[in-house]
């Protein structure tokens, strides 16, 4: 991994991102509209390197690991590409076309989030700062 020292670091950062996103009214509304159980699978970088977000029924609940229920959508990629993606430095369409991101299930909900990616990147930067990961911020 180019940006992370172990498989736990990225999950800590991404969970922090979602915790902060929930506090932001616009992003929280956007996430609720996704209305899916999503598994972000980075297990190619370690067995514990994944987390899930449950945006169903007006909630936004995020937690480490694979969800116990079958996810509506699974996105599999490397933790480094996930870092680029949350930093809005990776074109998700291009990454899917080039198989850097593998998608299983319906990606329709994610389209709702696409317009908010710029804002997600701002909050992600704040999350990295909060965790003293400022050196990881992509300029």
């Amino acid at each position: 991994m180019e940006y992370w020292k172990d498989q736990h670091e990225p999950i800590t950062a991404f969970l922090k991102l979602f915790e902060k996103a929930k506090q932001d009214p616009e992003l929280s509304e956007g996430l609720k509209k996704v209305n899916q159980l999503i598994w972000f699978d980075y297990t190619e970088d370690g067995p514990d390197c994944s987390f899930h977000v449950d945006c169903r029924n007006g909630n936004v609940l995020s937690s480490q690991g694979k969800p116990s229920e079958e996810p509506d959508l699974t996105m599999s990629l490397s933790a480094d590409d996930a870092h680029r993606s949350w930093s809005n430095k990776l074109n998700p369409v291009m990454a899917i076309t080039r198989r850097k991101i593998r998608v299983k299930g319906s990606a329709t909900g994610l389209l709702k989030l696409a317009p908010k990616l710029k804002k997600v990147a701002i909050i992600y930067e704040q999350a990295l700062n909060d965790l003293n990961f400022s050196d990881k911020i992509l300029k």
Binding site: S106, T108, L111, K112, A114, P115
Partner: peptide
């Protein structure tokens, strides 16, 4: 799922 206008919002 949403036709050719699926990404109009984006």
């Amino acid at each position: 799922e949403n036709g050719t206008a699926a990404n109009l919002e984006g």
